[in-house]
Write a protein that binds this DNA or RNA. Structure first.
Length: 271
DNA sequence: ACTGGCTCCTGAGGGC
DNA sequence: TGCCCTCAGGAGCCAG
């Protein structure tokens, strides 16, 4: 399940192979992703030069003079560069054929991913329009979290996973951040002090930055590699560790559900 | 405005 | 060993 660090690492890994390249053709074998891949993409993208590749939330934005391709990896999507002639395997739904002799190949067994096309500024696109700040940028901090949580009765874990509040905090990192900040995941967001909001914002930044760091050092080849998605083998303190000892105090980690998501916390360390 | 629940899809993993 | 069943997950969307 690509989380923000995986998307960031993917972006950095494939960018050198795409920037300045011309897209010669688009091969679509399966149009039925989360939304159907629009025909406008096959019409507009071929012949275009890749002017920029960047990440916004968990979306990858591939900019050309004609428009921007918006790509999301969903929970099982991955990208890699292969020789243009290499035969696709199962779930390899589409290729962007480059003028380098390689193609960018998208695989997504569960098809929760998406590839869309917009001719306008991508920030105006329906999917990107209402997104909150990037967690690693200065505009996201304890003050912002405090302000956005006032009056909210929802669980703090659900709040930090709300992309209108802050983008890119998936289930794993929400769990880990709350553990680090010593906050109980079910606590009502509006009842968390300013100081604890500061701790939480700092924890979110630290956890994500460490994961990106780990991704950068993980031996991971986007060229002819296996392109396997998944989290970096970062040491996880609570996620997936139900009944196991808390690394800080030894108490048994508890599992619950918050907003239909698996939630893990230490009953001693998190209040 | 907020909140909670549903939905898409398939591989993995548990139980027998 | 093998089969069947359940479930997880990102996040948009809808209903109350």
């Amino acid at each position: 399940m690509p989380e923000l660090p995986e998307v960031e690492t993917t972006c950095r890994g494939i960018a050198p192979h795409l920037l300045g390249r011309r897209i010669e053709a688009v091969r679509i074998r399966e149009r039925r992703l989360r939304w159907p891949v629009p025909r406008s993409l096959d019409r507009d993208l071929p012949g275009q030069k890749v002017l920029d590749l960047r990440r916004r939330a968990k979306y990858l934005l591939l900019e050309t003079a004609a428009g921007t391709a918006i790509l999301h990896l969903g929970m099982s999507g991955s990208l890699r560069l292969v020789a243009a002639g290499q035969a696709p395997e199962r779930h390899d739904h589409l290729d962007l054929v480059l003028d380098s002799g390689r193609c960018l190949r998208f695989r997504d067994p569960r098809r929760f991913g998406a590839l869309l096309w917009t001719r306008r500024a991508p920030e105006r696109h329906r999917l990107l329009r209402d997104l909150g700040p990037e967690p690693l940028e200065a505009s996201f901090d304890g003050g912002w979290l405090y302000q956005r949580s006032r009056g909210r009765r929802t669980a703090i874990k659900a709040l930090i996973m709300d992309s209108r509040v802050v983008v890119g905090v998936g289930n794993i990192y929400a769990n880990e951040s709350l553990f680090r900040a010593g906050i109980h995941p079910a606590r009502a967001a509006g009842r968390i002090s300013r100081a604890r909001c500061e701790r939480l914002a700092a924890a979110i930044k630290a956890v994500l930055a460490e994961a990106i760091e780990a991704g950068g050092t993980t031996l991971r080849d986007f060229v002819d590699g296996d392109g396997r998605p998944g989290y970096f083998r970062q040491s996880l303190a609570v996620y997936g560790r139900a009944d196991k000892p808390c690394p800080a105090c030894g108490a048994a980690i508890r599992e619950s559900r918050i907003a239909q998501r698996s939630t893990f916390h230490c009953p001693r360390c998190q209040r």
